[in-house]
Simulated scan of single mutants.
Amino acid sequence: MDIEAPPPSEEPTAHVVFGTNQVQPIDLVAERYHQGLAPLIIATGGVNRHTGIVEGRWFHELLSLRGVPDQAIRVEDRSSDTEQNVEFSLAFIREALSSGLAITAVSKWYHRRTLHALKTRVPEIGAFYGLSWEPVYAGRLVTRAEWPRIPDGERRVVREWDEVRRRVADGSLQPVQKLNGVWS
């Protein structure tokens, strides 16, 4: 389930930050921007059903507070799910690809739908990368090692695995595989 497939340390890529109400991906991407590794950041997410925040706009605000300039940020703020994150960001993703940047998905470590949605909605994506972070649910960090012992973590990881397998099998999501450290 782990999406981690980091780009080479010297390769700048466009970072697609998938919507969430947690701040960890913004800290990760802002740091990478300041290292020269994320020259284009695509912040995605509409209204969060739990908090009411508009994730894409909130990400933009947080990135700005961390010194990332507006010209490096694109915002998608209408989506309500992972596939819409990609669908409503297509112009930005294609902008990145046409400028020669590979794509890096930034999401929870187990959120495989991000990878499949990119491959399904952007068939010309070629090889792409994944950077992940560990979310907090019910006050507990859902790590790669501890998730089976955390009821909310186990529920989320198993649900994601089942959803991805079912959707790849029915053809509504394209399969992806990691070869030589990249997704394709």
Rank of each mutant, 00 (worst) to 15 (best):
R159F: 08
R66M: 08
V47Q: 14
T114H: 10
A5S: 12
E76K: 02
M1V: 10
V164Y: 06
S184Y: 14
A30I: 10
W147E: 05
H111T: 00
G181M: 07
A30W: 09
L141G: 04
D70G: 06
T143D: 14
E87S: 14
A169E: 14
R167V: 04
T114E: 11
V17N: 01
L37K: 09
G19M: 10
E4F: 15
Y110H: 05
G36N: 09
G56E: 02
D152P: 06
R78G: 11
I103W: 05
V164E: 08
E146Y: 08
A127I: 07
G126I: 06
Y110R: 01
E83V: 07
R166Y: 11
P6D: 01
G100P: 03
H15D: 14
L97V: 10
L97T: 06
Q84D: 13
A127H: 14
L173D: 09
W161Y: 11
R121A: 12
F128I: 01
I93T: 00
V17F: 02
H50E: 15
P7I: 08
E11I: 12
F92L: 12
M1A: 15
A96V: 10
L37Q: 07
P135Y: 14
S99L: 13
A5W: 07
V86M: 13
M1I: 05
G153T: 02
E124H: 07
R166P: 04
E163K: 14
S98W: 12
R57V: 05
E124P: 04
R149T: 15
T13Q: 09
A138Q: 13
V68T: 03
S79E: 01
R78H: 14
Q24P: 07
L118N: 00
V136P: 04
I53F: 11
G52P: 03
R121I: 12
Y129S: 05
G139S: 08
A105R: 05
R113Y: 02
L97Q: 13
R167D: 12
Q84R: 08
I26N: 00
Q84P: 02
I42M: 05
A138P: 05
E163N: 12
E31A: 13
R155P: 02
G46S: 07
V106M: 06
S107W: 03
V29K: 01
H15K: 13
Q177E: 15
R94Q: 13
T114F: 13
P12Q: 08
L101V: 10
S107H: 01
P7C: 03
A102V: 02
T82G: 01
G56W: 00
L28K: 02
T20P: 07
E124R: 05
Y33F: 15
S107K: 00
W147R: 02
L141E: 15
R49Q: 14
L101F: 12
R66G: 08
I125Q: 11
Q174V: 09
A169G: 07
P39F: 15
Q35L: 13
D152H: 08
E76G: 02
D2T: 08
N85Y: 11
V16Y: 03
S64D: 13
